[in-house]
């Protein structure tokens, strides 16, 4: 087997393994966990960009 064929076979093993992992229970669990974490982070960034009238008009005095 030539080296190129060997690499090609390794690549397909990697991709095949990933496709199986995505469908597995552990893959689905990870997807749920990270989806929740992502939503939380996005929501917190969205909150940070919102303008609050009272905050913007409080005096910075000290």
């Amino acid at each position: 087997m030539s080296k190129n064929n060997e690499n090609s076979q390794n690549t397909s093993v990697l991709i095949k393994g990933i496709e199986e992992y995505i469908k597995s229970d552990e893959g689905k669990r990870k997807a749920t966990v990270y989806d929740k974490a992502l939503q939380e982070r996005v929501a917190s960034r969205l909150k940070a960009e919102q303008m609050d009238w009272e905050t913007l008009h409080t005096r910075v005095t000290i």
Partner: peptide
């Protein structure tokens, strides 16, 4: 970029490497 990196990171976690 923060959200995009987290999205990319999530994708990397989902493929199990």
């Amino acid at each position: 970029p923060g959200n995009d990196i987290d999205t990319f990171n999530k994708a990397l976690e989902m493929v199990g490497l």
